[in-house]
Simulated scan of single mutants.
Amino acid sequence: MDLTDAIYGRRATRAYTAAPVPKEVLERLVDAAIQAPSAVNEQPWDFTIIQNTQLLDRISTAAKAHMTATVPNVSFPEHLHESLESPDFHVFYHAPVLITISARMGAWAVENATLAAENLMLAAHAQGLGSCWIGFAQRWLETAEGKRALGVPDNFVPVAPIIIGHSAASAAPVPRRPPQLRWIG
């Protein structure tokens, strides 16, 4: 797949089939992720790959409760609060895989993990897989309990919880607003 096609074609996927993703494919996605640049070439990444649906269900429930308890109602639209309060809503959309990218704590931990995450999501798209960064899980995974659930070392911070799987439906392109450009010189 051409890089431009990957960039313009990748979409956040929120509907998945139950088909498993082979271990070899997941390893290729992680290998693509670690090709990302990192500050001072530190390469501070740690990857947790969860395919256990019971654990994903437990994390979904805990993340929903954490978001409901800690995020002010004005932080995001009402329909998202309704989703969090629904017992039927699963923050991982029943995707078969969660890959959480953590980074060693430091000045550029978020940036380092985010660069790796974009590589991973583009590589997933190139493999014919869907992906989505799950912000609803992010804050709970940063807690001590969340880090324990992932087995993340104390000196690392979970940054990018990304679900992976076979898309159940094609996601339509989302119109983009024109960029605000400032030309100097």
Rank of each mutant, 00 (worst) to 15 (best):
3 L>N: 05
5 D>Y: 05
9 G>K: 10
16 Y>H: 00
18 A>S: 10
19 A>Y: 12
22 P>W: 08
27 E>K: 11
29 L>V: 02
29 L>G: 02
33 A>S: 04
36 A>Q: 06
41 N>S: 04
43 Q>E: 09
46 D>V: 06
48 T>M: 10
48 T>F: 05
48 T>E: 04
54 Q>N: 11
57 D>L: 03
64 K>T: 01
66 H>C: 01
81 H>V: 15
84 L>S: 03
85 E>T: 04
85 E>H: 15
87 P>I: 08
88 D>Q: 11
88 D>M: 06
89 F>G: 00
90 H>V: 03
92 F>Q: 00
97 V>G: 01
100 T>W: 10
103 A>I: 08
108 W>H: 11
109 A>V: 03
112 N>A: 12
113 A>W: 12
117 A>N: 01
121 M>C: 11
124 A>S: 09
124 A>M: 09
125 H>P: 02
127 Q>F: 14
128 G>Q: 08
130 G>N: 01
132 C>E: 00
135 G>D: 10
137 A>V: 02
138 Q>E: 09
143 T>Y: 10
145 E>N: 06
149 A>V: 02
150 L>D: 00
155 N>H: 14
159 V>D: 03
160 A>C: 12
164 I>N: 00
164 I>V: 11
165 G>F: 04
165 G>V: 00
167 S>V: 07
168 A>S: 04
169 A>L: 11
174 V>Q: 15
176 R>E: 13
182 R>N: 09
182 R>W: 12
